[in-house]
Nucleic acid binder design. Sequence first.
DNA 1: TTAAATTCCTGTAAGC
DNA 2: TGCTTACAGGAATTTA
Length: 290
Amino acid sequence: MPELPEVETIVADLRPHLAGRTIVRCELMFPGIVRHPEPELFIDAVAGMRIAGLRRRGKYIFIDLENDVVMVVHLGMTGQLRLVDADAPVETHTHAIFTLDSSPSGRPAAGHLPHEWGRDQLRYRDPRRFGRLLAGTEIELLASKTMPLLGPEPIDPDFAPEELYQRLRKRRTSLKAILLDQATIAGVGNIYADESLHRARLRPDRVAGGLSRKSTQRLHESLRHSLETAIANRGSSVDTYRDAWGQIGGQQEKLLVYGRAGEPCFTCGRPLAMIRIAGRSTVFCRRCQR
DNA sequence: TTAAATTCCTGTAAGC
DNA sequence: TGCTTACAGGAATTTA
């Protein structure tokens, strides 16, 4: 499922291909995927608009348009945002299609007229339909409660261990539940929560509030390492995750604990345990994580 | 106020 | 073989 590294990969891949282009047409096959505003108003808000740039915030994709309007894409569990040729076959579960004007980066081949240049489409596909599309100014989206307040970016250079310590200090729930809470830290999901806790040698069911500064420092370092390594490997394709070109990532081959319940711990060799925390399957090593 | 439980959704895999 | 059932999970919503 797409978490911070997967979303970062998609945004970085799409940015040079989308910035500066115009959304000439927006079609919704499944209007229910749009959560704000009403589907007809969503189409009005994005159609004809020039794309100023792309950003990632937590697991959200921000496509900046004109006049401070932003189109927000959240991929949920199985969402895919792909850039394809306009004449490519439309896959099942495709819920929205954004047709773009001709690419400003690709000069036409000699003898070709502008209308013959490649007309690309940005397509949103999501079998399980847990994802969502939003449009509006950021202030409007926050006020309408369709966009939640997010915690700091764990890979932001300004995010210090002390801030993590302060955010965990008063919490009475488990470390695993805290890492999944987007208001505490943005972008971490089930895969990288388990990976980070294993690397930090911390039990996922430990109460967050009791963590020492030293252990918090380890968790801080582990979060960054797990997320940055995954970005370098273009994310984990453990379920249906695909990048903007439909290709799988490489991090799933390197995961230490996620999806490995019952298999031996790479450090001590004991079988990895699986428990449920906050309704999520959680894999860890009973010997290495205390 | 905080935390836990429930809900949404469909593809996949296990069990009979 | 074909059917039923359990499971996967991000985050909004509901309940405690």
